[in-house]
Design a protein around this nucleic acid. Structure first.
Lengths: 213, 213
DNA sequence: AACAAGGGCTGTGTATACATAACGGATGAT
DNA sequence: ATCATCCGTTATGTATACACAGCCCTTGTT
């Protein structure tokens, strides 16, 4: 693997996992020494992060980790509803029903995964990621898929803010199962509606856990 | 201006204006000499182009200019309809009516601009760009605006393929005026419908002029 | 004591030298 | 004759040295 890829992945994870807080400046020499690479590949990594919106160049003062405000979350979910609603509808039109039926079955059994010992819920999130991938493949629209991929980076970051308790995750699994069911049934409008429902509930949950004060 | 910015702008223009045809390989040393910059800023320019999708890295063989097939155009417009339809609806809800009323007036007089001597129709395209900017500002959603900006690069490239004759441009101006009117009237569904109409006609025009053989 | 000017320092922007991997051609063996 | 292998060339990947600009601190003057 290339040094620039390693630097990019390391920095991206640090930002997504909130180990690098918003506002943190990332001087090139300091970070290149921390990650054990030279300045050249590190600069490329920073360029990619800035293109994705995870960092911004603060005019002569280096790049800084971007903040995510509550307004940002609203905007993020507004775009997400647009893109993922369309994607679900297209998947219902073009997707393979068998694939989504299988995903629906697995999602209905997801509570077992959530109650398992893994506190990070890797198995559950991996299952949801497989649903995303199946939708990506079904829509056969690389531009739309690319737009959603660039969104998901920010969404993972937001997800780390929310308290993903057992109750919410089981509800979310049921909502995902409903999306998969609608796609498997070949019903575009229902798939879009199920997606809208799920995103609104997710957004409500995030805002409820993040603005109690 | 930085050397990397100049290299990026030059290469982007060359690709958009089809001076660099799809499939053209862009070796770093050759292009750096052509543009009068070193390899380092040129590499950053190529990274940005690749992130936008105008070029792709061809594993060890350098970066190549990406192709735009007819399927790509279909996918592009599918995403465009989703994003710009939503944007028009949001602009109708949140925008300043006076701004769009003024734009509508100017668009209704656009045929005068088109029949002017300028063969590149700079004035007309500048007016359309102002409508895009007004919508961007009205939606107050930076993520959606960013997604549309990254799309427009590809769309300009496609536009260069189409025969923008007088008849099509005057029709397009009327369609744009209808969008501005709907936004000014504060009617989201009408604005979205007008956008859908315009994009479908644009797509039909592109496909009609590009697949006669 | 306060303000302005200058110098140093820290940062990014650029160039270039070196390392390394892959493609192509040529040559040999089968 | 054809295929495999080796070597040379050429490309990118990386490191580092240099250039330059902006901010802060210090110092001098008023």
């Amino acid at each position: 693997m290339r040094a620039s890829d390693r630097a990019y992945a390391a920095l991206r994870d640090d930002i997504i996992e909130w180990r690098l807080r918003p506002g943190t400046v990332l001087p090139e020499v300091e970070q290149s020494e921390r990650l054990g690479v030279s300045r050249t590949p590190l600069r490329e990594a920073l360029s990619r992060l800035t293109a994705e919106g995870l960092t911004t160049t603060a005019g002569g003062r280096g790049v800084v980790v971007t903040d995510i405000s509550l307004e940002d979350i609203d905007e993020l979910f507004e775009l997400r509803e647009t893109l993922e609603g369309k994607a679900a509808a297209l998947a219902a039109e073009r997707g393979d029903a068998a694939v989504f039926l299988q995903l629906q079955r697995e999602l209905l059994e997801a509570p077992a995964l959530i109650s398992a010992i893994d506190p990070a819920r890797h198995e559950y999130y991996e299952l949801v990621a497989r649903l995303d991938s199946a939708i990506d493949a079904a829509i056969s629209n690389s531009y739309l898929a690319q737009a959603m991929r660039s969104l998901r980076v920010h969404l993972v970051r937001v997800r780390r803010l929310a308290a993903d308790d057992y109750a919410r995750l089981t509800a979310a699994a049921a909502e995902h199962a409903a999306i998969a069911e609608a796609i498997a049934a070949g019903n575009p409008r229902l798939a879009q509606a199920a997606t809208t429902m799920h995103l609104h509930r997710s957004l409500s949950h995030v805002k409820a856990t993040h603005t109690p004060q």
